[in-house]
């Protein structure tokens, strides 16, 4: 295991599989009423959140606490970080506090990479701008494996605002590493330049959602912010939903076994119809639960092996 988890590209297939296996064990223990493991007792995990993301922060917090770590929440609101303290100065503060791991969510791509150069502890990227969100990709892979038994060989279709999506980038990298075939679908304005080759080779790109659905094992719908239309990425929410939203009729074009995933929070009626979000194919609720197990596994593997 590497010292940091900055990008899904930091994980080779063996390491990613080890994380998923460990997450499975964590989930099994939780099922047996073992609420807390002593693994990280005496270790300090700092949640450093420069963006409001209660869901992700709570998920990491729960994961760290179930491993008996001391958790410090350092949120941008009401702290020195909102008063203009530089990331480097904050890093030095965390260093002085003896943080063993820093879980960082930041609006600027690459902020976790900068942080990793300034602290001795492990840095976990919990979402950096439009770059990556590796633990989201891990929990998505975990969910696929739990439902379909494998990741290798699956055809995963990722639909929507790939340009602004850290979830998409991390998923493309991790799923390819694990042997899945990935197709990205969206309006050309929301597919970044050279995306077919920029991350990994072998990615397919399509502008036609209907054409790829019959061949999909998993459809992952990305959140699309309505404000994108004011910047002319698409003309209207209605047209977007019509061309790229997943509604009932489209869902019925999927093979029987295919899953519908969404990293949340959803825009119901925009990229996903309520009928689809609430269907049996939807894994959206499981994804949240699996997030805690996967984050426990990552913290355990990054920190567990080290002397305290």
């Amino acid at each position: 295991m590497t010292r940091h988890l900055l990008s899904a590209a930091d994980l080779d297939a063996a390491t990613a599989t080890m994380i998923l296996d460990t997450a499975q064990e964590m989930a099994n223990l939780a099922g047996h009423q073992v609420k807390k493991l002593p693994t990280l007792r005496g270790r300090t995990v700092v949640n450093l959140f420069y963006e409001d993301s209660t869901r992700t922060r709570i998920s990491f917090e729960a994961a760290a606490k179930r491993l008996s770590a001391d958790v410090i929440n350092f949120s941008a609101k009401g702290s020195s970080v909102s008063k203009g303290e530089s990331l480097k100065d904050t890093a030095l503060t965390l260093q002085a506090m003896g943080a063993d791991a820093v879980v960082v969510r930041h609006p600027a791509a690459g902020a976790p990479h900068r942080l990793a150069g300034w602290v001795d502890g492990s840095v976990l990227n919990a979402g950096d701008g439009t770059h990556e969100h590796p633990t989201q990709a891990l929990l998505d892979a975990y969910t696929m494996r739990a439902r379909l038994g494998r990741v290798a060989g699956l055809h995963v279709v990722i639909v929507g605002d790939v340009l602004h999506s850290r979830v998409a980038r991390s998923n493309v990298l991790l799923l390819s590493t694990l042997g899945a075939k990935v197709t990205l679908v969206g309006p050309p304005t929301l597919l970044p330049v050279d995306i077919a080759t920029a991350l990994v080779p072998g990615i397919s790109v399509s502008y036609d959602l209907d054409a790829v659905l019959p061949d999909a094992d998993v459809v992952m719908m990305l959140r699309v912010q309505r404000e994108r239309m004011t910047d002319s990425f698409f003309p209207s929410a209605r047209e977007y939903a019509r061309r790229y939203g997943l509604d009932g009729p489209r869902m019925r074009r999927l093979p029987e076994h295919a899953l519908v995933m969404h990293p949340g929070p959803m825009n119901r009626g925009m990229e996903i119809a309520p009928e689809v979000a609430d269907s049996a194919r939807s894994t959206i609720v499981e994804q949240v639960a699996n997030g805690v197990s996967v984050r426990m596994a990552v913290l355990y593997l990054l920190l567990g092996g080290k002397p305290s």
């Binding site: 791509a109 950096d128 439009t130 770059h131 990556e132 980038r169 330049v193 050279d194 920029a198």
Partner: peptide
């Protein structure tokens, strides 16, 4: 704006 920007998630200057 190109492959590296896409990989790094940084907005492109075409």
């Amino acid at each position: 704006e190109g492959e590296v920007a896409t990989r790094l998630g940084l907005a492109g200057w075409p």
